[in-house]
Amino acid sequence: MGGNGQRRLRGVSAVLSLILLAGLGATSAAGAATEGSATPAVACSLSLGSGGARGEHSRQEIRATVPPSITPTWTTEHVYTAGGPWMSSRFQYEPGPAGGGHADGWVAVGDGLYRSQYNTDENQQLVGRPIYRRVGGGWGMFRAFEESQYVDASFDRTNEYALRNQDGTLFRWTVDAKGGWHKAGTAAGFSAVKAMALISKTRTYDTFLANTHSGGLYTIHIPTKLPMKPVVKVVRKSTWQGFDTLIAQGCGNGVLLLGINRDTEVAYLYAVGHANGTATPIQNRGKLPATLTPSTYFRWGYIPDLDRFGGE
């Protein structure tokens, strides 16, 4: 495996932090979902990204009203060649001082995985050419990929996760300061998983929320220490099989969860409280008032210092 591309500088200015929070839907302390509750204030929102067949990258803001509301925000054309990526991690968008910005994330194109980076102007259109750094082949055998980067004032770790199609094996790698990948364990037994979304990341563990083909909804708690031994807990036993894609955004002590059905091109938004097995509160905020045409969907996230999740 190769490198993950240039690390973005941390410790951004307060001005840029405020711009980012305003642009990507921050949750105010007063409006956050409290622990044991699945009721977010309107301030909670999720930035939905998509990579379309024309090679464009788009962002839409989904707010946790009832029913949820959705606002198109921008489309950046010609990021990829026609067809675009078929799998994506979350993407980070960091605003620049002149009104443009920098986008950074992982995509699978063909059989390769690439670190994808590009700059935009004040209208979110390309400036220069996108950069793609290949991390090797064989990625056609995977069906899900996500990056978990946890950063605080004295600590920085990056874990990469991928779920293999053939046998449901979950892979993990750690990434060092120079961008080198290192194997950090595998775990078998996830062949029933249909989709998964990151809901927690701390110094010592990551947690995913996953649905299965039979309809169950589970948390997968993964300690960062070796050996890799996930702990799986049931959240709901049925009715969740319809979603092909799950996307989560932190909201107080829980998350907003978007479930997308590719066959019917519809999506539903849920407020999920702090994970506690079958006692986890889940509130259906309703169906999105939009048709989600076939695309590769992902989450637009914050810079790592601000991209907090406390879903478990």
Rank of each mutant, 00 (worst) to 15 (best):
T264G: 02
Y80T: 15
S45W: 00
L257Y: 07
I199Y: 11
T204A: 10
S200W: 02
T71M: 06
A162Q: 01
D176A: 12
Q117R: 10
G23M: 14
G51D: 12
T278R: 13
V266W: 02
T212Q: 06
D244L: 02
S58L: 03
K287A: 14
N276F: 04
V255W: 10
E122Y: 10
P289D: 03
D206M: 03
G96Y: 01
R134K: 06
S154C: 08
S238E: 12
S37G: 11
P130V: 06
T224L: 14
V109G: 01
W240R: 01
G31K: 00
A29V: 15
G273R: 12
V255F: 13
G96K: 12
P230K: 04
Q166N: 10
Q283I: 08
L292T: 01
P72K: 05
R59H: 05
L292F: 04
G101D: 02
G31C: 03
K233L: 10
R134E: 15
Q117V: 11
F91M: 15
D244T: 00
F309S: 08
G180V: 06
A267N: 00
A267S: 06
Q241L: 08
S154E: 14
G31W: 02
G301F: 03
K233H: 10
Q124P: 00
R172Q: 10
Q6K: 12
N123T: 15
S37M: 08
G2D: 10
G36C: 04
A82H: 09
G286F: 04
T264K: 03
S295T: 13
G52E: 10
G301Q: 02
G36H: 04
W139F: 12
V175P: 01
L16E: 07
G180C: 09
T71Q: 10
P223M: 00
D305I: 08
A290C: 06
G138T: 05
E160G: 11
A22V: 14
T71P: 05
A38Y: 02
Y114H: 09
V15R: 09
P230L: 00
L256M: 07
Q92C: 15
K183R: 07
S191N: 13
Q166W: 07
H274Y: 13
G105F: 03
Y161E: 06
R262M: 11
G101R: 00
H78N: 13
K225R: 05
G5H: 00
K229S: 08
A26T: 14
S50L: 04
A144N: 12
G136D: 04
G100M: 06
Q149S: 09
G137W: 00
I220Q: 09
R115E: 07
A30G: 15
F208P: 11
I19A: 06
N276C: 07
Q283V: 06
T34L: 13
S13C: 05
G112A: 15
S17C: 06
W240A: 05
Q166K: 14
E312H: 14
S37K: 02
L257A: 01
G311F: 13
I220P: 09
V107E: 02
Y302H: 08
A32P: 11
A98D: 15
Y161I: 03
V193H: 15
F142C: 09
P281S: 13
W181I: 11
M228A: 07
S116G: 01
F190S: 14
F142M: 08
R172D: 04
A275D: 12
Q249M: 03
G112E: 15
